[in-house]
Design a protein around this nucleic acid. Structure first.
Length: 117
RNA sequence: CGAGUAAGCUGGACAGCCGCGUGGGCAGGCCGAAAGGCCGUCCAUGAGGAAAGUCCGGGCUCCACAGGGCAAGGAUAACGGGUAACGCCCGCCGAAGGCGACUUCAGGAAAAGUGCAACAGAGAUAUACCGCCUCGCCCCGUUUGCGAGGUAAGGGUGGAAAGGCGGAGAUAAGCGCCCGCCCGAUGACUGGGAACUGCUCAUCGCUGUAAACUCUAUCCGGAGCAACACCGUGGUAACGCAACAGGCCGGCCCGGCCGCGUUUUGGAGGUGGCUGGAACGCGCUGGCAACGGCGCGUCUAGAUAGAUGGCUGUCUUAAAGGACAGAACCCGGCUUACAGGCUUGCUCGCGCC
RNA sequence: AGCGGAUUAGUGUAAUGGUAGCACACCAGACUCUGACUCUGUUCGUGAGGGUUCGAAUCCUUCAUCCGCUG
């Protein structure tokens, strides 16, 4: 992921939960906020309620792959946090990708030229 | 062929495109005075049999003591061996279960002492309630009443009632008081390295509970890689220096903010600890086995919000859209979870030769 | 990841190995014209499996769930 660094500190997550824009469906919740930096910052949250370590790793890898494949379609300078809900453990990659694209379009995360896709 | 039992192995393979962690290389590119950093590209490598639970044992690090002992607390418990060590493993003994192969067992001491045994029952570690028998009293008994004494054979309760069954002699009635058979304990003898065992002999007939306290034997200092070592921002304290000076914001005045160095404490963050080890594979060899010895060969994750993913195709398959499940300092075990497949030994039953 | 603790009725909480108790709540009845308050009564039980024991909430063991500490 060339133009994205990962979001690590807890206070950045907390600021995003309070001040960012939100969209959610039954599988994912998405928090977005403009940071003013050149690169995007991505945070993934998969809590222990989702499942055991194997299930959590699989969900996290699929979400990272969804973000990576659609990275070029996203606007720059955004902080993004994807929270996996319980039903994401039993969802396929295609269901997760559809959820992410729908939520990202709802929040205006996509670039203007890519919205028709 | 069917049913069962024990032990062991396996836990999908291959290919294409995009992508990730670690290590190494490139007269490669960019930044930089340099050290070096970033990018690109190539090569190698990259989760398990339980990585899990954290129930035991060790290594390693720090703290305490540093010569050892006792007490307290904790752990273990037939016997012999294996191991670095273990509460683990192997062999064997005993007990219980099974037709059998085989499985299970915290399996020392209750005759060193203390405690507990509810309810029921006359009585719970000793006992006379009913009953049986004898004697005495009275209204003189065949029955019934009162009192004294003997008696554990019979009654019912209970998890457990003082060895069990049968019998004669004996007795007022009875009792291992005696006899035959059986059971158990201890000692002698036999076999065994030991636990233990067996034909016999002698003595004896003792409730259970130690996963209650306890006794005996052996072992154990405490904490844990978020340990620990080093670098070190801001802050704290001490000392020294400087304190009508200087620096920063501000066009200037006015105004606002800030001491410097060393040491100590402290610990945002970073580096090490970090993976070559009681290691793995093959062969020979000692041992019933657990396990050990020798030789040759191999290097096999090391992340730090945490790397194995996404899409597609082929094959094996009943099913590959997945069984259980993700290393986090490292080993030896134990326990728990697990779709399916394979191999071997043995037992029982049926059939055929 | 390492370490420590807990689990009893719907809720809170007692119980020396020997009939599992108390309070609130729920339900029913009484009181009242009705409701509340009050009184009486019933129901609801030891997280799961295995073991020791004559007998386990309690003792031992294996799991499950929950909570806390270390940044």
């Amino acid at each position: 992921m060339k133009k994205t660094v990962s979001l690590k500190e807890n206070h950045l997550f907390r600021r995003l939960y309070q001040k960012g824009k939100t969209a959610a469906d039954s599988r994912l919740a998405l928090y977005v906020r403009r940071s003013g930096r050149e690169k995007n910052r991505l945070g993934l949250t998969v809590s222990t309620k989702v499942g055991c370590a194997v299930v959590r790793n699989r969900v996290r890898r699929r979400l990272r792959e969804v973000y990576r494949l659609h990275e070029n379609q996203l606007a720059d300078g955004m902080d993004v946090v994807i929270v996996a809900r319980v039903r994401a453990a039993h969802s396929s990659y295609w269901q997760l990708e559809a959820s992410f694209l729908k939520l990202a379009d709802k929040l205006g995360l996509m670039k203007k030229g890519e919205r028709e896709l």
